[in-house]
Design a protein around this nucleic acid. Sequence first.
DNA 1: TTAAGAAATTGAAACGTTCTAATTACGCTT
DNA 2: AAGCGTAATTAGAACGTTTCAATTTCTTAA
Lengths: 329, 329
Amino acid sequence: MKDVAREAGVSLGTVSNVFNGFPATDLTRRKVQNAAERLGYRINNYARGLKTNKTYTVALILPSLEMPFFHHLAEAVTAELMRNGYRTILMITYYDTDVEQQCIDMVEQNKIDGIIALTYNPDLQVDASIPFVSIDRHCGASICCVSSDNYHGGELAAEALIACGCKKLLFMRIGSDVASEVDKRGAGFQAVCQTRGIPCESIILHDSETDAPFYRYLEAHVHDGIAEFDGIFCNTDRLALRILRKLAELDVRVPEDVQVIGFDGLEDYVTQEPPCSTIVQPVTFIAQTAVSVLLDRENTVHPTLICLPVRYEAHGTTKGQVSVWQANI
Amino acid sequence: MKDVAREAGVSLGTVSNVFNGFPATDLTRRKVQNAAERLGYRINNYARGLKTNKTYTVALILPSLEMPFFHHLAEAVTAELMRNGYRTILMITYYDTDVEQQCIDMVEQNKIDGIIALTYNPDLQVDASIPFVSIDRHCGASICCVSSDNYHGGELAAEALIACGCKKLLFMRIGSDVASEVDKRGAGFQAVCQTRGIPCESIILHDSETDAPFYRYLEAHVHDGIAEFDGIFCNTDRLALRILRKLAELDVRVPEDVQVIGFDGLEDYVTQEPPCSTIVQPVTFIAQTAVSVLLDRENTVHPTLICLPVRYEAHGTTKGQVSVWQANI
DNA sequence: TTAAGAAATTGAAACGTTCTAATTACGCTT
DNA sequence: AAGCGTAATTAGAACGTTTCAATTTCTTAA
């Protein structure tokens, strides 16, 4: 920059002004730009960050990229940040709460502009001075969490199954994250069942790595292809897919005898064989919202939870193309 | 840091020494650490980067995260970099060659320590002074590219099918990246067919978004469940999966009448229904190799291509559990 | 006890920006 | 032509580290 200033015959400050869009004569502007071009000058963002304390970098902390929801999120967050001129530092925790804390520590060390995280550590130590947005799960009372409207998603699933004629329902939930927003899917589902007077059984697996308990339940409650229930809501598409295969194995006809709805609506699972009706999460919208809440530090008061609308999408494991999401619940 | 120095009653330089592991008395070391603790001091990496020109950050540029190969790669690269004390800046190009160039430009501006990229732009402008490793595809004569041993993978596929009794083979290839390392799969496959005197037809789709041409071919060459070929090698598992479904639709029995092998071996596809025999890529190893080549700037001379070993894995769409990868080709 | 040598510590000058207050140049009005 | 207000430019002090030559302190051996 010093060289550019000398080459252009102006002062250091002027070069800085030109590069930051501060007022300058067309002539000087041109002189500086030419000099910079000739010298192949590139601004040094570290020196700049040192002075401004602004790094145009945010950290994205995720448990893994293997689950479709996670890598879709990663892609969407990265894209949205880039659109705003920010870079993404990606960190993977492998569902390990210690690694989560490590990531936070590492990242705070680096004077970044914010953190977007999906973590499982209930008592994460995070510096209150650094903007933080969580996804799917609260971490800290005053930290904004953005997620799908899981509760309403559960309601939609119940409404859809009931509208398609189901009389006896089943809710299946797997996954290790307790007390997360995701947990509300079951609550919404059960609430509707209750109101409508539809019996509903729940099988909830928090710590199990395997689906075996679900399979055992199915085997116990299906006899000669006749099931004791006629509708299942699985809390993820991934699970729904495996349940569908198990049902096929047990000679249960879908959707004739039993109807199935999953949750997520990411192409990866929905288009698999068989494709499954589902509650679609607005991943891209979640990403965009998280980013804009994070970057918008104008309002000092932030919402503590933002739920984004989900919708029901029929893919053949429920009867008909019922547009339940338009129902006024 | 100034405050820490004052608090500990030592000079600025000493504090720096302590934090960088330079020799210091146990006493001073303790004094400095206590002071730092009391003041909640954290080193500022931007100031440090300014001085040392070392940022402990590398950029990872990928077309997308949706393909299993890509997100596995992203995860493995991130983990490996973290293990080495580096941070990962993730950038997604959406297969757009302009965006690729943009990413490179952005990243060069930021004085990072290196770039790992999987790009499609044949004439990417990249600053020779910044360490660069590409994956799956060369970009620039003197830039190191690491990939699976795709040629040998093709050979393995052919060997496996032939060892399982195939007499008339088919090679199917889809994907937009021309002239990449991936392209060598077909070459290896055909070479073995030639040597062994096995007839082999190839259907190569470079620009097609859809599989329709493959389906049309299959429909034309299968009559009443009897196919004119008895073995297929698909250049990805994703494709293999769809071909398998089409074959089922055409009442072709797999593996009895036609055997199928895919390529990639990432859980996402192999465990789908039906699971498919495949050539497994060592994703994690690719990631580790890319990182270590990138970080190891000691040797000024770098290899221009590094091929990592693949292996054949039977999953039921080929007959028997033939361990072809041990064959001495 | 002292001199020499090694080890630890210090002070000040970088690194490449931005920022602020001060200065200079410019265009108008009287 | 002088005076005034505004806009553009400048000089130099930060920002928080590292680095290196110079200095001090500590060890050891004569």
